[in-house]
Design a binder for these strands. Structure first.
Length: 522
DNA sequence: TCTGCCGGGGG
DNA sequence: CCCCCGGCAGA
């Protein structure tokens, strides 16, 4: 992969403050000559630390841990920038981090580089320390006049968008926002808690300011926020690494730009350690376009979003609440999901049943899932399912139901069904005796389920009609109607096509009457 | 633009 | 009811 803007700022050559070699406590300045990583102290922070070889003023070389140097800073009230740079570079301390590939270092590039640095996701297998450092940096920068990681224009735009989204989101979904987590605590704790040991470790990302920056969010979820290909491109490398590290390889499908990723090696099980209980009544659904993953815990969904969609690896500590914008809280009757499915409505079984995309125990499900979501998406989910409990599996089902919550998501379900007749059939089976498109049902039912309103689908209506009727009943008043209005146009052969206008007399009556063909049903 | 089919309407 | 058709909307 081409790592443009990968130029990492090296700490080498940076002036730093360090404890006086003489031990008199007076800090001295020196120039970093080399950086190397040490794997010691894993216990303390759970990370590797960098050791800096500093050329002291007196010409001697000394080695300092980052802590020592940092301490020096504090003592001497180091200048923000300096410190900042230290942190920054230290985080990049990894040996391979200094390469610059094919990117001309124009002044602009350099500038961007800064930004990139901030956002970059650690690519080293072990740069967990990065996140820690990043965290520190954040803290520091907030109180010190440090040029906060500069934001790219896109980023700025994103912020605006974000702000807008926040407002809208807040008004619509009462989410439990995780309060900003304190650095150390959050970091170590979360890491451990998550048990993200393997896959997680590698990626440390860190973006001080701009998680947004990279296109991921923009191109994916926000219809309103176009993501300049440029950004996507430029950050791709980072993203890739981050994703891989997270073990979200499957996320690929979500982002076309990720196609290039060689995530092969990066595909790990989604490290979602959270336990999910089926009994949960409140679920959290990822609103990311084409995702829709549903988790039982806010933390879980946040993590999902953070890692999968935002490409961030660090845990809650890194969270700035951004994830909140990408998921919504949905209330559902557990029973309904688990067992109530059947009772819910004829449809429910097929619709609700957990559809692990690829490996679904239930044939019907698999079909359904397939029909409802393009194969590619299944990938996305897979990982999760793999590492998660039953709940996660069930999540997908919920997903379907929810889908329509957001207009932009509704689209997916809709289009899919129509394409595959089989799917339709399977879905419809449970739902409507007739063929037509059951999709409409599944599509709409979602809102129903989640709305929390008790669904009494069992309302008895005529058969064929029932379908629509039922829907109407079930679907949430607001939006369902519109979408539902029309039966999806059948794609199969119709009398007209088969016999042609000239043989109109051979058409089925329905066709002749311009009604839904009864002979060649889809 | 073609085509499926919904909603109406005439007889 | 039977039969047609205007017109919408997906492909």
């Amino acid at each position: 992969m081409h790592t443009r803007r990968l130029v990492k700022r090296s700490i080498l050559g940076s002036r730093v403050y360090a404890p006086s070699p003489t031990g008199d406590g007076a800090p001295v300045t020196g120039v970093v000559q080399a950086v190397k990583q040490e794997n010691r102290d894993v216990s303390s922070v759970g990370t590797r630390r960098s050791v800096y070889t500093v050329l002291m003023q007196d010409g001697s070389l000394k080695e300092f841990s980052e802590e020592e140097i940092a301490a020096g800073f504090n003592h001497t009230a180091a200048k923000g920038p300096l410190k900042s740079s230290l942190k920054q570079s230290s985080s990049n301390g990894a040996p391979e981090s200094h390469k610059v590939e094919g990117s001309p270092l124009s002044p602009e590039a350099v500038e961007e580089q800064r930004v990139a640095d901030g956002k970059r996701v650690g690519r080293d297998p072990d740069t967990r320390s990065v996140s820690l450092l990043e965290q520190k940096r954040k803290v520091v920068s907030s109180s010190i006049d440090v040029p906060h990681a500069r934001r790219s224009e896109e980023e700025v735009d994103m912020d605006k968008v974000t702000a807008a989204m926040v407002l809208t989101t807040l008004s619509t979904s009462p989410l439990v926002r995780s309060p900003p987590v304190k650095v150390n605590e959050g970091l170590s704790g979360s890491w451990k808690d998550n048990g993200s040991a393997g896959p997680f470790t590698p990626s440390s990302n860190s973006s001080s300011g701009g998680y947004w920056s990279w296109s991921a969010p923009s191109d994916q979820s926000n219809p309103s926020t176009p993501s300049p290909p440029l950004s996507a491109d430029s950050f791709k490398p980072f993203r890739v690494s981050s994703l891989g590290g997270v073990g979200s390889g499957p996320a690929g499908p979500e982002d076309p730009s990720l196609d290039e990723q060689d995530g092969s090696s990066l595909l790990f099980d989604e490290p979602i350690p959270r336990k999910r209980k089926n009994s949960m009544k409140v679920m959290f659904k990822c609103l990311w376009k084409n995702c829709g993953k549903v988790l039982s815990t806010a933390a879980g969904i946040q993590r999902h979003i953070r890692t999968i969609h935002l490409g961030r690896n660090c845990d809650s500590d890194c969270s700035d609440g951004e994830e909140d914008f990408y998921y919504t809280e949905i209330k559902l009757n557990t029973d309904s999901v688990a067992e109530g499915l059947s009772s819910l409505s004829p449809v429910s079984p097929s619709v609700l049943s957990p559809p692990p995309p690829s490996a679904s125990p239930l044939p019907a499900l698999s079909q359904l899932s397939d029909s409802h979501r393009p194969p590619q998406y299944s990938d996305t989910k897979e990982p999760h399912a793999g590492g998660t409990t039953p709940l996660s599996r069930s999540a997908p089902s919920a997903l379907y139901l929810i889908h329509t919550d957001h207009a932009y998501q509704a689209t997916a379900p809709v289009s899919i069904p129509s394409s595959s007749s089989n799917a339709t059939g399977s879905a419809s089976t449970s739902f409507t005796p007739t063929n037509s498109s059951s999709f409409s049902i599944s599509w709409q039912s979602p809102p129903v389920t989640f709305t929390g309103t008790t669904v009494s689908p069992s309302k008895s209506h005529g058969f064929g009609e029932q379908r629509s009727q039922t829907i109407a009943v079930l679907s949430s008043p607001p939006r369902a109607t519109t979408a539902l209005s029309r039966k999806v146009r059948g794609e199969g052969k119709k009398c007209r096509k088969v016999y042609g206008m000239e043989n109109r007399d051979m058409w089925c009556t329905a066709c002749r009457w311009k009604k839904a063909c009864q002979r060649f049903t889809d």
